[in-house]
Design a protein around this nucleic acid. Structure first.
Lengths: 111, 111
DNA sequence: TGATTAATTAACTACATGGTTTATTAAGGG
DNA sequence: CCCTTAATAAACCATGTAGTTAATTAATCA
């Protein structure tokens, strides 16, 4: 799998609000599938599929504990996303500078 | 549109390699649709659709200049993504600490 | 062993996505 | 005015996504 493929899978996994919510809950600690499914207005198999998508994107790991499948967050792909955004940081910071200048001009005019 | 909806659209737009490549090229400066399409092994309408997806996600703006439609990068949604990842930074940094400790232990054993 | 619990698989439906080719709109240039 | 260029729209196709319900697997517990 190329780096591009993994970015595809990660961005695509993050594109669904239910999956981002699952990640947010896993940030609090390891949890089972049923516990993760509980707050959703959605069938258990549907949640199971979302979890599978997250697993395939490398965003979570699943172990076996009796009949339970405790899920654990793997933050590495999120870090990859954060790294990817860094290439664009100079651009949005430049924009911020323009805003700053604009605000300065407004201040000058009002004085 | 809720914040969740815009995150959905942005992550989903970023999930395709052609669209990330278009953004990377726009980071170098404003360009027309045909110029953006040139490097792709894909029809012009296909590229036009990708550009539409990026526009709908707010990642680019399009102006009109005669028959040209110069596209400009809007970095704000990328900043939103970067902000989103920050919630998880403590987790991957904690992991890094664990790695550091592990490396220290290995060093201890080898001495 | 039989019942219960956790989770996945299977089969299906509706709709979205990514691509094609052909046709169309709209502007500029000789 | 016609021709060319830039770009989009229309119609279509194949595949993927997100959900459902019903069935199945696999482990625990009484």
């Amino acid at each position: 799998m190329t780096q591009d493929d993994t970015l595809d899978a990660v961005f695509s996994a993050l594109a669904h609000p239910a999956r981002r919510e699952i990640l947010a809950r896993l940030a609090q600690g390891t949890t089972t599938v049923n516990a993760l499914a509980e707050p959703f207005d959605m069938s258990l198999p549907a949640v199971s599929k979302h979890i599978r998508v997250l697993e395939n994107a490398g965003l979570i790991k699943r172990e076996k504990d009796a009949q339970f499948r405790p899920c654990t967050l793997n933050p590495k792909p999120i870090q990859d996303i954060a790294d990817w955004t860094e290439k664009y940081r100079p651009i949005w910071e430049a924009r911020f500078d323009v805003m700053g200048k604009l605000l300065d001009e407004m201040k000058d005019q009002s004085s």
